[in-house]
Design a protein around this nucleic acid. Sequence first.
DNA 1: AAGCCGATCTTCT
DNA 2: GAAGATCGGCTTG
Length: 184
Amino acid sequence: MAVARNLLGARLVRVIGEERRSGRIVETEAYRPGDPASHAFRGETSRNRSMFGRPGLAYVYFTYGSCHCVNVVCEPEGVGAAVLIRALAPEEGAAGMARARGRESDLASGPGRLCQALEIDRRLDGVDLLASDVLYLAAGDPVRDSQVASTPRIGISRARDLPWRFAVAGDPHLSRRARSHATA
DNA sequence: AAGCCGATCTTCT
DNA sequence: GAAGATCGGCTTG
């Protein structure tokens, strides 16, 4: 999907009081209407409600008892589609991310990790990523087509064959599963 | 380097 | 009752 590909290189910025933490998006994954792997597939629930909101909103969910993940809603209101942000290359506020993560490496190289590093949880579900001043998207360095790897999605059991995962080829900050998975 | 396990919330069967 | 858009630690090879 176009939005997932075009988010590569953009920045995700988190402001916590006086502190700024940000990173360049290096890995995304698209979840579209009619997609059996999408949280929206079985209709609207209290958890996925914001996925059906207007484009640019954040959909933040909690899973596996311990991990949050952020998505960017990208279809008109009522449709139910989003792009999962899977990995960031840390830029501003790496020290704060390390504090939040309790480690110095792999600060944002995974969908759950980046939420921990940026202190994103369900309280940020539904914020407008194009207007908020606590969590928002900003322009970054565009990524050339020659650097983009488009491959099957990871971490799901249904519709695995759809090539809707996008990554900056060879980037050192890709998610663990992207690294063990062939990234061609 | 790769694979299993536990943690433990939300939804679905 | 089980599986899931995961992570980190431990075990095995």
